Amino acid sequence: MSNWKLICKLDDIPQLGSRVVQRQSGGDIAIFRNAEDEVFALHDKCPHKSGPLSQGIVHGRKVTCPLHGWNIGLEDGHAVAPDVGSCSKFEVKVENGEVFLSV
């Protein structure tokens, strides 16, 4: 059974933007919101050169890394072909306008 931690209100994450959740170990988590108000959570490091995905451009269900333009799938954390690699994804949900992260 998962435990859920309240992170913020959905409106605190800009559409086509992100919010960073800092962790004491294991690296930060980027929580993304797309134009359809879907929310996704990934490790905040591009698998290519560890660029901060939270500073990337969100489009559809992908984010483009700001360093070298790799596209990363928000649903699974996998780089879009022809690039290869992945970053960890985390369970996230929205209930009553609030965003929760599985811990």
Score class of each variant (00 low, 15 high):
Pro14Arg: 11
Leu101Asn: 05
His68Glu: 07
Lys9Met: 07
Cys46Met: 01
His78Gly: 06
Val58Ser: 08
His48Arg: 09
Ile72Gln: 01
Glu36Ile: 05
Pro14Cys: 13
Ile31Tyr: 03
Glu36Asn: 11
Ser18Gln: 05
Asp44His: 02
Glu91Val: 01
Val58Asp: 07
Gly73Gln: 14
Phe40Arg: 04
Gly51Asp: 07
Val63Tyr: 01
Leu101Gln: 05
Ser2Pro: 11
Asp12Leu: 07
Gly85Asn: 03
Asn34Cys: 12
Gln15Thr: 13
Phe90Leu: 01
Leu16Tyr: 11
Arg61Ala: 08
Glu36Cys: 05
His68Met: 04
Ile13Trp: 08
Gln22Met: 04
Lys45Ile: 06
Asp12Gln: 12
Ile57Asp: 14
Ile29Lys: 00
Ile57Ser: 14
Val103Pro: 05
Val80Thr: 11
Leu67Ala: 04
Arg19His: 10
Lys93Asn: 05
Ala41Val: 02
Lys62Val: 07
His48Glu: 06
Leu16Arg: 15
His78Tyr: 02
Thr64Arg: 00
Val103Asp: 13
Ala35Tyr: 08
Leu53Met: 06
Gln55Val: 06
Asp12Cys: 08
Leu53Lys: 03
Gly56Asp: 09
Val84Lys: 01
Asp28Lys: 01
Asn3Cys: 09
Leu74Met: 14
Trp4Lys: 09
Gly56Asn: 09
Arg23Leu: 15
Glu38Thr: 11
Val99Leu: 10
Ser102His: 10
Phe100Ser: 09
Val63Thr: 06
Val80Glu: 12
Gln24His: 04
Cys46His: 01
Ile72Cys: 01
Trp4Gln: 07
Gly51Pro: 06
Gln22Cys: 07
Pro14Phe: 12
Ser88His: 03
Lys89Arg: 09
Gly17Pro: 07
Gly85Pro: 10
Glu75Val: 14
Ala30Gln: 04
Asp76Arg: 01
Glu95Cys: 12
Pro52Met: 09
Ser86Gly: 08
Glu38Gly: 09
Glu38Lys: 15
Leu74Tyr: 13
Ala41Ser: 03
Pro14Ala: 12
Ile72Pro: 00
Arg61Thr: 13
Ile72Ser: 02
Ser2Tyr: 05
Ser25Leu: 09
Cys46Asn: 02
Ser2His: 05
Cys46Gly: 01
Pro66Gln: 12
Pro14Lys: 11
Val92Thr: 12
Ile57Lys: 15
Asp11Arg: 13
His78Pro: 04
Gln15Ile: 15
Glu75Gln: 12
Val39Lys: 06
Trp70Arg: 01
Leu10Trp: 04
Gly85Met: 02
Lys5Glu: 05
His48Gly: 03
Gln55Cys: 06
Arg33Thr: 14
Leu74Glu: 14
Asp76Val: 07
Val84Pro: 04
Cys65Lys: 06
Asn71Tyr: 03
Ser86Cys: 10
Val92Asp: 11
Lys62Tyr: 08
Pro66Thr: 13
Met1Arg: 14
Val39Ile: 14
Val58Thr: 04
Ile72Gly: 00
Met1Ser: 13
Gln22Asn: 10
Ser54Gln: 09
Ala79Ile: 05
Asn3Gln: 14
Gln24Ala: 10
Asn96Asp: 08
Gly69Pro: 02
